[in-house]
């Protein structure tokens, strides 16, 4: 598999470690009223789609960027690769 790293260009998947569903970026607010339930869901519930899936990959043998790779689980086609940091900021995590 080839992942087109936004900074480094196409890299072999061997250089990466996969973590899984990119929803792990959306860590709940620890002070929310139902924090326990939210963290339970965050920790344990994942969608397992046949088709487009957003995944977290870590360029461990490279520049140590965490990436969000949008990939088809049916064809393995890589549809989009973003820096996870950019995704996290776009989702308001820098506040």
């Amino acid at each position: 598999m080839i992942i087109d790293h936004p900074l480094l260009g196409p890299r072999d998947a061997q250089e990466f470690v996969i973590l899984g569903d990119a929803s792990l970026i959306d860590r709940p607010d620890w002070q929310a009223e139902d924090a326990a339930q939210q963290f339970h869901d965050y920790q344990h519930l994942r969608d397992n789609p046949a088709g487009e899936h957003r995944e977290l990959w870590f360029h461990e043998q490279g520049d140590r960027s965490w990436l969000v790779v949008t990939r088809s689980t049916l064809t393995h086609e890589v549809l989009k690769v973003e820096l996870a940091r950019d995704v996290a900021i776009a989702r308001g995590r820098n506040r």
Binding site: L19, L24, I25, R27, L56, F58, S65, W66, L83, A84, R85, V87, A88, I89, R93, N94, R95
Partner: peptide, 9 residues
Amino acid sequence: FARQCLWPG
């Protein structure tokens, strides 16, 4: 992961 994905600010 914590640095880039959870607390990028």
